[in-house]
Structure formats: structure tokens, C-alpha cells
């Protein structure tokens, strides 16, 4: 337990270091994006005077380090600043609402695709080279090969246009909350499921096969243990390891990187917010979104590592059994 704690602290330290470096990289990247923010804001009818006045008013003329310092000191205390457009409207009030929507979408997708892909992955692994395996593998490969904007359009065509079960666009009517419109989550979540299913089920299948062929499973089977017991008690725990890594690695994407899916469905989440921010060069908003996504990625990687070592004693006790 002490080792686990030590590892946790070490990971936390490197996480913080990563975030500091990343925050500067994000700031720099946004800085060198082509196009001028003030020009962008004012549009074509902007005169040079107007652009200059706006640059001055928004503090865009200050030196880079000064602006970075101002930004990061706000971020540390939870103030992400104002959107460059809506003065007086803090990014916090824009961002968290969208993050809430994204979390609901990610959670929905997660509880659909994780059990589904693990179950079918295990099934395919256990039934290796049998028709069940072939069907699952074929389906997995097919959905993996389809990018989400293609599978998304197929889903829209079938479930929204033809069957009319779900709305074509995931828009929350004005004055209502997402809870009154949970049906808008379904199609985007299914679209994510299709992308993730092939990936995870194939990973689960191959690790299941290798575990099932290992000596200790053969020994367990030979001593007459029931097959169900062998699969779920002995094989699954070990076969889950690579799958958990894959799931963990995709958590960041799931919570913050769904730009394509959200844009396609018009879902009011963080991905589409990021898209809007980039399109309109809303620098503080881009920085806030990207930083948040970085945090999610780092934290989910950390959790994955910790879970991994919990499940796999060989990693937990790397220094040898004491």
C-alpha cells in the first residue's frame, strides 16, 4: 500500500510538471496561429484604428510573457478569464455548462461501449476461430474502419431520418436543459460506440486468447474447474489489463476530444465549443478548453496506471517482493 501511495505521489508530481509545460505550449501555439484576433473580431469593416484600439483594450499588445503570466495566475485560482468576445461573460460560465453536456455524452457512451466491447471481446476470444468469433471480429473491423463522420451519417440516416426515433441534430431547445432532452445523447453516443467497439473488442479478444492458452489456465481446466469459473475468475482479470490501458488512453478523447462527433450532430458540448473557439480565434476560450482536455488526458492516464498496477502485481512490486 505504501508503494502504491508513493507511486501515486510521484505520478501526481509529474502530472503537475506536465501541466505547467503544457500550459506554456498551449499558450505559444495559440499565439502563432495565423490570423489576427482583433481583425477577426472586427471583421472586414475594421479600420486600422479600430483594430489598434481593440488590441489595446484587450491587452493584446503586452509582451508575451506578461500575458502568459496574467493568464496562468488566473487559471491557478480557477479564473479562466473572459471570452474575448463577450466581455463581462466569464469563460467559467460558458465552459462548465458545455463540459457538463460532454460528461453526460461521454458517460453514456462509456456505459454502452465498455461492457459491450469487453463482453463480445471475451466471447470472441473464448470461441476463437468459430463462427461467433468471425462475426464479432468482422463487425469490429468494419466499425473500426469507418470514421465517425461516416458512421454518424449512417446512424442519422437510419435512426433519425428513416425511423425518426431520435432527432437529426442534437440541439437543446432554448429554455430547456439537457435532462429534458436526453434523446439527443443517444446517436452521438452510438457513434462513439461504433468507433470504440472494434478497437476494444479486438484488444480484449487477443489478450483473452493469449491468456486462455497459458499454462495456468490449462492447469485449471485440467484439474476440472468449471469453464465459467476459469474464464471469469482466472482468465478475465489478466486479460483485462491491456483493455484497461486502451480504455484509459481514450478517456481524454472521450471527454474532450469529440470534436468531429459533436460538430456532426451539433451537440452542445466541449468539442463543438472548442471548434467554435478556434474558428472565431477566441484565444482565452481555446486555451481554457485545451488545458482542460490536457488535464483530463493526464488524470485519466494516471488513473489507468494506478489501476493497472493494482491489477498487475508484477508492476506494483517492480522492485521485487519484500
Amino acid at each position: 500500500m505504501k508503494r502504491l501511495m508513493e507511486m501515486f505521489l510521484r505520478r501526481l508530481g509529474s502530472l503537475l510538471a506536465t501541466l505547467v509545460v503544457m500550459s506554456f505550449v498551449i499558450f505559444l501555439l495559440v499565439e502563432i496561429m495565423p490570423g489576427d484576433v482583433a481583425q477577426m473580431i472586427l471583421g472586414q469593416s475594421a479600420t486600422e484604428e479600430a483594430v489598434a484600439a481593440l488590441r489595446e483594450a484587450r491587452g493584446l499588445n503586452d509582451p508575451l510573457l506578461e500575458r502568459y503570466g496574467r493568464w496562468i495566475s488566473g487559471v491557478v485560482v480557477g479564473d479562466l478569464g473572459d471570452s474575448i468576445y463577450m466581455q463581462g461573460v466569464s469563460i467559467n460560465s460558458i465552459l462548465w455548462r458545455k463540459v457538463g453536456h460532454s460528461i453526460i455524452l461521454a458517460m453514456t457512451a462509456f456505459i454502452i461501449f465498455v461492457p459491450l466491447s469487453i463482453f463480445f471481446g471475451v466471447l470472441a476470444g473464448v470461441k476463437e476461430k468459430k463462427p461467433t468469433d468471425s462475426i464479432i471480429s468482422f463487425f469490429g473491423l468494419a466499425t473500426m474502419a469507418l470514421p465517425e463522420f461516416v458512421s454518424g451519417v449512417i446512424l442519422i440516416t437510419v435512426f433519425a431520418v428513416q425511423l425518426k426515433w431520435f432527432p437529426i441534430v442534437s440541439v437543446i431547445p432554448i429554455g430547456e436543459s439537457i435532462w429534458q432532452n436526453l434523446n439527443i445523447v443517444v446517436l452521438p453516443a452510438l457513434s462513439i460506440t461504433l468507433v470504440m467497439f472494434g478497437y476494444i473488442s479486438r484488444m480484449q479478444r487477443s489478450s483473452m486468447i493469449s491468456v486462455m492458452n497459458s499454462d495456468y489456465i490449462r492447469a485449471a481446466t485440467l484439474k476440472g474447474m468449471p469453464r465459467r469459473y476459469v474464464i471469469f475468475r482466472h482468465a478475465l482479470k489478466n486479460a483485462m489489463l491491456p483493455t484497461i490501458t486502451i480504455i484509459g488512453m481514450n478517456m481524454g478523447w472521450l471527454f474532450g476530444g469529440l470534436v468531429v462527433v459533436e460538430t456532426l450532430f451539433g451537440f452542445p458540448g466541449m468539442g463543438s465549443l472548442l471548434m467554435t473557439a478556434i474558428k472565431t480565434r477566441d484565444v482565452p476560450l481555446i486555451e481554457a478548453c485545451v488545458l482542460l482536455i490536457t488535464v483530463i488526458y493526464s488524470v485519466s492516464t494516471m488513473i489507468t496506471d494506478i489501476m493497472y498496477s493494482y491489477l498487475n502485481p508484477r508492476i506494483r512490486y517492480q522492485g521485487g517482493q519484500k
Partner: peptide
């Protein structure tokens, strides 16, 4: 208008801002 113009636009027009959700919608 310097501090409210972007979040609470106000004029004499035929319609009044009732609700503004930044980057999402206006009623």
C-alpha cells in the same frame, strides 16, 4: 455599454433580450 453591451444588449427595438446563453442561444 462598455460592461453590459456584450452580455445584456439593450436598445429601443421591437424585441428585448430575455435570455442569452453564451455561444449557444438567445431568446
Amino acid at each position: 455599454y462598455a460592461s453590459l453591451g456584450e452580455s445584456k444588449p439593450m436598445g429601443t427595438g421591437p424585441f428585448m433580450m430575455s435570455q442569452l446563453v453564451p455561444k449557444e442561444s438567445a431568446l
